[in-house]
Nucleic acid binder design. Structure first.
Lengths: 111, 111
DNA sequence: CAAATAGTCAAGCAACTACTTGACTGTTGC
DNA sequence: GCAACAGTCAAGTAGTTGCTTGACTATTTG
């Protein structure tokens, strides 16, 4: 599912749709309005976002209302956060090691 | 650059490479080891990651050493965090509104 | 009821992606 | 110096993506 989430977010039109939906739910036509492409194309983008779990939608009458699914955003975000914090922690450890002149096992790093 | 970052992360092989690099820098051959594909293919994946700003690499002698670029990870993460927190804040406001029976302009929500 | 609205479906197409193969360029170790 | 090693380059290919068009299906609304 991360595959699909990141893939979905790689397209600027789809990120635009997500950004718009962060302001609140919208119909497909409303989502399509800012773009020059056809409605059918926007529908396809919404389907991609929905398959990726970034968005949910429900059709009432003839209008389909779309809204963000924050859980989808969160899972992508968490993957990134987990990796990044791990790297940065290691970099900090390295920096501390370089700052420390005496290589003693008992840690006591004062500037 | 977000386009390229998300696009890069959409591929499981490339996410695998990033995960491996979170443990520390590695040569291209080391990165390729866990995969069944050719070395040339892995080189191409590394190039995609580098173009996306998720990774940096330097060639010394005949070996190219690759490491994560946490700034790249962070910018993708920040895009997600900004959108998600905005949506969740709005959902919380809505929940509070629904919990409140009297629709008065002066807010005073007690459970 | 008829026309406009909101969206859906399927086919087609150009561009891009994720590979492979094979030939080639430097580098290191004996 | 020469073989093995680490990687690079370029071309080719099957499959995917981001559109479009045109025909079609509901659902309002006057």
């Amino acid at each position: 599912m991360l595959d699909q989430a990141f893939q979905a977010l790689a397209d600027p039109t789809r990120r635009g749709v997500v950004e718009r939906l962060c302001e609140g739910p919208a119909s497909v036509s409303e989502l399509a309005a800012p773009f020059t492409m056809t409605l059918a194309a926007v529908v396809q983008h919404v389907q991609v976002l929905e398959a990726a779990g970034l968005v949910r939608s429900e059709k009432i009458g003839r209008v389909r209302t779309v809204q963000v699914d924050s859980a989808g955003l969160r899972s992508a975000e968490e993957w990134l956060a987990a990796r990044r914090t791990r790297v940065e922690r290691d970099l900090d450890r390295l920096a501390a090691l370089l700052a420390e002149p005496a290589p003693e096992p008992s840690a006591n790093a004062e500037e």
